[in-house]
């Protein structure tokens, strides 16, 4: 006999609230928003208890509901940016306009500079470097909301690209342009802070 999982809403708070909170906070970087989404998730789940099929765990089911709510927040954060025209080409900042060559001041340089070569050597472990990690975090926060959402979804959820496009209402060429821009900015920001 297959054991079906039964929901126990009265124990949700003690069993899952902290987990869901950490999940939301990691993606939103905002305590209050993360907290509110946990609450909204529980209430939404109560409304659709009958839709739970018992095939996934309670936590997986609740997390799926939370995920939709996080995407909603991304969408709202981005709505102010939807008018930003992708063809303004801010990456021109990094390259010569006529031939696309790196501009001297933005040209990537090895980030070793006398210390452990954290971003230059393949087999070093950059995560072990606390300073580099905190620089990365600061630089991530400087990204525009849309770029941050795309990045977070791509790197955290390993979400299929077409699903991200659908959720954030982007075309695929815009998607690559955003990924490209975000990375150029992020890398330049790290280099500037590091060297």
């Amino acid at each position: 006999m297959v054991e079906t999982i039964v929901l126990e809403p009265r124990s949700w708070v003690s069993a899952h609230a902290d987990y869901l909170y950490n999940y939301a906070f990691a993606r939103l970087d905002h305590e209050e928003q993360a907290r509110d989404l946990v609450q909204e998730t529980f209430l939404a789940a109560l409304e659709r208890l009958d839709q739970f099929k018992g095939r996934s765990s309670e936590r997986t089911w609740l997390t799926a509901i939370l995920k939709f709510k996080i995407i909603d927040v991304y969408r709202k954060r981005n709505s102010g940016l939807q008018t930003e025209r992708v063809d303004r080409e801010p990456e021109q900042e990094f390259f010569e306009a006529d031939n696309g060559h790196w501009k001297e001041e933005y040209s990537p340089r090895p980030l070793g500079a006398g210390r452990e070569d954290a971003l230059g050597v393949e087999d070093s472990d950059p995560l072990a470097d606390k300073e580099l990690t905190s620089i990365l975090q600061r630089c991530l926060q400087k990204l525009p909301a849309l770029w941050y959402s795309v990045f977070t979804m791509k790197h955290m959820e390993e979400e299929a690209t077409d699903k991200i496009l659908q959720e954030l209402k982007l075309t695929s060429s815009n998607f690559w342009v955003i990924i490209h821009r975000a990375k150029l900015n992020l890398r330049a920001c790290i280099q500037k802070a590091w060297l």
Binding site: Y21, N22, F25, R35, L119, L132, R187
Partner: peptide, 24 residues
């Protein structure tokens, strides 16, 4: 090389944040 390294780091940063053990 640096771009790949950054991708790896981003994943690590987010994972670490998820496991920070914050409490409501």
């Amino acid at each position: 090389k640096q771009s790949r390294m950054i991708n790896k780091m981003i994943k690590g940063v987010f994972r670490a944040k998820e496991e920070e053990g914050r409490r409501l």
